[in-house]
């Protein structure tokens, strides 16, 4: 029973981060959410020094920064990446300065290490209820506004041209991200919370090219690495945030290796079988130019002796990125 609450907390944290991370990536607001994650850290540092309720103040700070970033990026002529990086530097400086200027009492508290490195002790029933509430509210929002959200996911510029308020929906997404980060911050730590937001979706993007599968895989991976990180933290007495971040990075690396291996195997198979997914077209210096339909890449690989060759390239290659991984 003692382990149940942290376990449930890790599972839900991973799920909500993986779910929101997918939308963050497809909406193209990764830099914005990164800045919000660090504003939550600054909020937590300020609250610690001033003696406010850390969770509530962090939540307030994250939500306020989400609204500010949403407003600035829609109004300012300056590129939003520059705005975000400027705010990111400022907020990090605020966080560090607040901690530096605080009393020795604050520096020696468990709360400080919780904010910076995360702690399983920070997972409480209240936080689990908060995470469930945020996740449920987001799901309700995503279902009600599915037509607009689908239009944004499919083509943001076209959706905007057709009258979908893309900036409003992006700001709403950032609000959900800000709220989730404010709650999860004390579990994973302020410096590593974004690893749960980005690494699962980055792994999902590598494991599948289909958006609906990515949408499914991302929260599953998020939950899995969060639980595995929690266990690693228990077993080896490590900071829970670093354990989760490390495992999510390992998952990302394994996903990359899997993608490269799958691409290679598919290309090999297509060379051996004329009816495979790709076809061999031209032979040049013992190498064959392969058009690979599934992974949308064009690559050179070694020619087997029995290779049937053709001439010319399909017109589709003109719109495919050229990836010479094996050349």
């Amino acid at each position: 029973m003692l382990l149940m609450i942290p376990l449930l907390g890790a599972l839900l944290s991973g799920f909500i981060c993986g779910m929101l991370g997918y939308y963050v990536q497809r909406y193209g607001v990764t830099t914005l959410s990164f800045t919000i994650a660090h504003s939550a850290l600054a909020g937590a540092a300020i609250s610690l020094v001033l003696g406010f309720n850390t969770t509530l103040f962090t939540l307030f700070f994250a939500v306020a920064s989400a609204l500010l970033i949403g407003y600035l990026t829609s109004k300012s002529p300056i590129r939003r990446e520059l705005i975000c990086m400027g705010l990111f530097s400022l907020l990090n400086a605020v966080a560090i300065l607040m901690l530096y200027m605080s009393s020795t009492n604050v520096l020696s508290t468990v709360q400080l290490s919780t904010i910076l490195w995360g702690s399983v002790l920070a997972i409480t029933c209240e936080k689990i209820i908060a995470i469930v509430t945020i996740a449920a509210t987001f799901l309700v929002y995503a279902v009600i506004f599915k037509p607009q959200i689908d239009a944004i996911l499919f083509d943001q510029k076209l959706a905007e041209a057709e009258g979908v308020n893309v900036k409003l929906h992006s700001t709403i997404l950032l609000l959900f991200v800000g709220s989730a980060i404010a709650i999860i911050l004390r579990i994973t730590g302020g410096f590593l919370v974004f690893s749960l937001l980005y690494n699962p979706v980055a792994s999902a993007l590598l494991l599948s090219k289909r958006a609906n599968i990515q949408q499914l895989i991302s929260p599953i991976l998020g939950s899995s690495v969060a639980i595995a990180g929690l266990f690693a933290s228990f077993m080896y007495n490590l900071p829970v945030g670093a354990s989760i971040a490390l495992l999510s990075s390992v998952t990302l690396l394994l996903s990359y290796v899997s993608r490269v291996t799958i691409n290679y195997m598919l290309a090999q198979r297509s060379v051996r079988s004329k009816e495979g997914i790709g076809e061999a077209f031209t032979v040049h210096l013992n190498r064959v130019l392969i058009y690979q339909n599934v992974s949308d890449t064009v690559r050179f690989i070694t020619v087997p002796a029995e290779l049937p060759t053709g001439t010319g390239l399909p017109s589709e290659t003109q719109r495919s990125p050229i990836n010479l991984l094996d050349s």
């Binding site: 037509p147 689908d150 239009a151 499919f154 057709e162 009258g163 979908v164 958006a211």
Partner: peptide
């Protein structure tokens, strides 16, 4: 790998005024 069907893409054109 874009999975939306052509019909769904056309339907999205009417999304700006609609909820589910």
């Amino acid at each position: 790998y874009e999975h939306y069907t052509a019909k769904k893409v056309i339907e999205m054109g009417l999304s700006s005024n609609r909820v589910i």
